[in-house]
Computed example of a mutant assay.
Amino acid sequence: MLIRIVRMTFQPERTAEFLQIFRDSEALIRQQPGCRHVQLWQDADAPHVYCTYSHWDSAEALNAYRRSELFGRVWPATKALFAAPAQAFSVHPVDAASGLL
């Protein structure tokens, strides 16, 4: 499993637009092959900063989504609302007891 976290800082006056984009696309993202979970987080101290937290079967599944028509619509619309570049990273869960993925 691959976990993807994308931290996005929005122009404060444009957060409602982002939330509408997310509401309109959340279920469609969840339906993408290999997507197991999508969640939206809001920064506790900066209300115009959000993170998407998603689980994917693999990097290949995430990359297929990133090449999809859906992503091609959602990402440019979201990016237009940014106050700063997004920070994105992927991680794998680790069993701390064994040190294994």
Rank of each mutant, 00 (worst) to 15 (best):
A97N: 09
L62A: 05
A86Q: 14
A88R: 06
Q42P: 02
R4M: 05
F18C: 00
W41G: 11
C51N: 06
H37M: 14
P33F: 10
A64S: 07
H92D: 02
T9C: 05
W56A: 03
A77D: 12
D43M: 03
K79W: 04
R4H: 10
Q87D: 09
L62P: 00
F89D: 03
Q11L: 13
K79I: 00
R67C: 11
Y50Q: 02
E69L: 15
A80Q: 10
E69W: 12
R23W: 11
P33H: 09
T15L: 15
A86H: 13
P33L: 09
Y50F: 15
F71C: 09
I21P: 01
A27C: 07
T9V: 13
F22D: 08
R36Q: 15
A97R: 13
L62W: 03
D95N: 15
R67M: 11
I5A: 08
F22R: 01
A84L: 08
R30H: 07
M1R: 12
Q87K: 07
Q87Y: 05
A16R: 14
H55T: 12
F71E: 00
V94M: 12
E17K: 07
R73I: 08
I3L: 05
A16E: 15
I29C: 09
H37C: 07
D43I: 01
R36D: 11
R30A: 11
P47W: 06
H37L: 14
A61K: 00
F89H: 09
A83Y: 06
L81S: 06
N63S: 07
A16Y: 06
D24S: 09
A46Y: 03
H37V: 05
G34I: 10
